[in-house]
């Protein structure tokens, strides 16, 4: 693409408010499901009416981990597995933010598994979106904690002999207060779920099953992206509110999708504020203001006073 064509593509693209067009083209392969989830995320934010300045996105490492770099929000591309603790720090240091973690199955549930279970346990008020493509794409198709039993991966060349996590069950058991699963075929439902999750108070988790065409599909002779979508079309079954013990995924098995969990529970920060207020009474105030903020307030006050005098 030449410079001019690139510039006009950037200008005309309906995603240009949401993406860093100067960073396009992205690194994702043809047929990859991550882009669909990012688009659904953009739609969700648009429909939510939330201020884009007050949403931060945090990714780990991997293909999905590159999302933070492309999205035009305050964005953090952290280290492998550590998106959730970084998001925790952001949320706690600046509670007015909506913080979204956007990362892959290997990042969030293998190297980062410990952080996931603890953030869910605390009901930390963040949204975690996991694009689950059953493999490590960035490093070349190795087995992850969600790779279905018997599936082929570069580190299980004779078929996977481990048992995978069922992510909604894990999230539910750890205390997540919103849990949903979709496939990348269900763009509108993903979008609606993310919008709900953004407005949900507490730890929300959305799993999106998506194809890795270059590695998982090819290595298992499952065809291309379209074949994956056909599989989702035929074998994904909506089962809202189903017991999360029954949503595990086998190799090319049926996939239960829908909103499985939604419950009300105080968030970590609500509990902190409650405790500290009990101890200190009305005196208690979390954090002060930064110097520029104080100065801006003083200036606005002085200006208002001057206006009043006139």
């Amino acid at each position: 693409m030449n410079q001019n064509a690139n510039a006009s593509f950037a200008q005309d693209n309906p995603m240009s408010q949401f993406l860093r067009m100067e960073r396009m083209p992205h690194i994702w392969c043809p047929g990859c499901g991550i882009g669909t989830v990012v688009t659904a995320f953009a739609e969700a934010i648009k429909k939510s009416g939330l201020d884009l300045d007050k949403i931060a996105i945090v990714s780990g490492i991997g293909c999905t981990g590159r999302t933070a770099g492309y999205v035009k929000l305050d964005s953090f591309h952290s280290t492998h597995g550590r998106a959730i603790p970084l998001a925790t720090g952001l949320k706690l240091a600046n509670p007015e933010m909506k913080v979204v973690v956007f990362s892959g199955d290997g990042d969030l549930f293998s190297i980062g598994g410990n952080h996931f279970i603890h953030a869910a346990r605390r009901n930390m008020d963040i949204t975690v979106v996991c694009v689950n493509n059953f493999t490590y794409g960035m490093t070349g198709g190795q087995m992850t904690p969600t790779t279905p039993n018997t599936a082929n991966a570069s580190t299980t060349p004779f078929g996977n002999y481990e048992f995978p996590f069922s992510l909604p069950f894990l999230a539910d058991a750890c205390g997540a207060t919103y849990v949903a699963r979709w496939t990348s075929l269900h763009a509108r439902q993903i979008s609606a779920s993310i919008k709900e999750a953004l407005n949900h108070k507490g730890f929300s988790f959305i799993e999106v099953i998506a194809p890795c065409t270059t590695l998982y599909q090819r290595r298992n002779r499952l065809g291309d992206g379209l074949d994956a979508l056909e599989y989702y079309q035929n074998d994904a079954e909506i089962a809202h509110g189903i017991d999360t013990r029954e949503v595990d995924i086998g190799y090319q098995s049926k996939i239960k999708i829908g909103k499985f969990v939604e419950r009300d529970k105080p968030t970590y920060l609500e509990n902190v504020n409650q405790k500290y207020t009990n101890v200190l009474g009305d005196e208690y105030q979390l954090y002060g203001k930064t110097t520029p903020e104080k100065e801006a307030e003083a200036k606005a006050k002085a200006e208002a006073a001057a206006k009043g005098a006139v």
Partner: peptide
Amino acid sequence: CPEAGGLFIQMEDEIASITALIGGAWGGQ
């Protein structure tokens, strides 16, 4: 920290602790 207007969190491990600091610092603290 309550009377100073701050927050303490006991993280799940030291990796989480240091990473939370990166978030905390860019959060403004």
